[in-house]
Amino acid sequence: MELSSHYLREKLQRDLEAEHVEVEDTTLNRCATSFRVLVVSTKFEGKPLLQRHRLVNECLAEELPHIHAFEQKTLTPEQWAREQPK
């Protein structure tokens, strides 16, 4: 399976109807086996952290077994707006 930041971003954006997605390849040599993602979606509203992360895990269920390390942050648009530097 060929993984790329671009591919993961597209998939998260599409399946989670995300309004903002950041995907960073966190491997030293950019060999696409470790990723850190930030997903901003209205789908997270009213959901506790565990459920939000489960949504992301489900979305990437096919890909995760091929990923060594995976960090995720899940925010609602409101939370995301609050995190922006003023």
């Binding site: 952290l49 565990l50 269920a61």
Partner: peptide
């Protein structure tokens, strides 16, 4: 836990999440 990664944390028998959470 239907959770794809290790580590996993449980409090009072309930799954809480992994490292990020």
């Amino acid at each position: 836990s239907n959770w794809p990664t290790i580590p996993q944390v449980y409090l009072n028998g309930e799954f809480v999440g992994g490292c990020d959470i």
